[in-house]
Amino acid sequence: PDLGLTQLFADPNLIENLKKNPKTSEMMKDPQLVAKLIGYKQNPQAIGQDLFTDPRLMTIMATLMGVDL
Rank of each mutant, 00 (worst) to 15 (best):
T63D: 03
M65V: 08
G4C: 11
D30F: 02
P1C: 11
V67A: 14
P31S: 08
P31E: 10
M58I: 12
G66M: 08
L8F: 10
F9I: 05
K29V: 04
A62L: 15
R56A: 06
N43L: 03
T59S: 08
T6V: 14
A35E: 13
M58T: 07
M27K: 01
T63L: 15
P12Y: 03
L69N: 14
D30M: 01
S25T: 09
L57D: 00
L18K: 00
K29H: 08
Q32I: 13
K19R: 13
M61D: 00
K23W: 10
Q45N: 13
A62P: 01
Q49R: 12
L14I: 10
M27E: 02
Q32N: 11
I38N: 12
I47Q: 04
L64M: 07
F9A: 02
N13T: 07
I60N: 00
D50H: 06
K19V: 08
L57M: 13
M65T: 10
P31T: 10
I38M: 15
L37M: 05
T6E: 13
Y40I: 07
M28R: 00
N13F: 12
I15H: 02
M65C: 07
P31Y: 06
P12E: 09
I38D: 07
T59M: 11
P22Y: 05
V67I: 15
M28Y: 01
I38W: 05
L5C: 10
G48M: 15
T24W: 02
L69C: 10
N13G: 08
M27A: 05
K29S: 09
A62N: 11
A10C: 07
E26Y: 07
L51Y: 08
L14D: 01
P31I: 07
M65F: 10
V67N: 12
K23F: 09
N43I: 03
D54Y: 02
F9R: 01
A10N: 12
M61P: 00
F9E: 01
I60Y: 01
N43V: 03
V67G: 12
L64A: 04
P22R: 05
V34E: 06
L33F: 11
K36T: 08
P44N: 04
K23G: 06
M58S: 07
N17G: 07
N17H: 11
Y40V: 03
I15A: 02
T6Q: 15
Q42M: 12
L64T: 02
I60R: 00
K23Q: 14
E16W: 05
D68K: 02
M58K: 09
M65A: 09
A10Y: 06
F52H: 12
Q7A: 14
T59F: 14
Q7K: 15
M27Y: 12
G48N: 14
D2W: 06
D54P: 00
D54M: 01
V34L: 11
N43S: 06
L8E: 02
M65Y: 08
T59C: 08
L5K: 05
N13E: 09
E26F: 09
D54N: 02
K41M: 15
P55E: 08
P1T: 13
G66T: 08
T24Q: 00
M28A: 02
M27C: 03
I15M: 06
K23P: 03
G39F: 15
N13W: 08
A10S: 14
P1N: 11
G48A: 15
S25R: 13
Q45V: 09
V34M: 06
N17C: 07
K36F: 07
A46I: 08
I15V: 08
P55M: 08
D30C: 03
D68S: 03
L33D: 00
L57G: 01
T24G: 01
A46V: 09
N43Q: 06
M61N: 01
T24K: 00
P44W: 09
T24M: 03
P44A: 07
A62E: 14
E26M: 09
N13S: 08
R56N: 04
M28S: 01
L57P: 00
P12D: 09
F9C: 05
P31N: 08
K36C: 04
D11S: 05
F9T: 02
L69K: 10
Y40K: 01
T53E: 12
T59P: 02
F52Q: 12
Q7P: 06
M61T: 05
K29N: 11
Y40T: 01
N43W: 06
I38S: 08
N21T: 03
N21Q: 04
A10G: 10
L51I: 13
E26K: 07
P55C: 07
L8R: 05
G4K: 15
D2C: 09
A35S: 10
N43A: 05
G4Y: 15
M58C: 09
F9N: 01
L5Q: 05
P31K: 10
K19M: 13
D50Y: 02
M65D: 03
V67M: 15
P22K: 07
K19T: 13
Y40C: 02
K29G: 06
A62M: 14
K20Q: 12
Q7S: 11
P31Q: 11
N13D: 12
K41G: 12
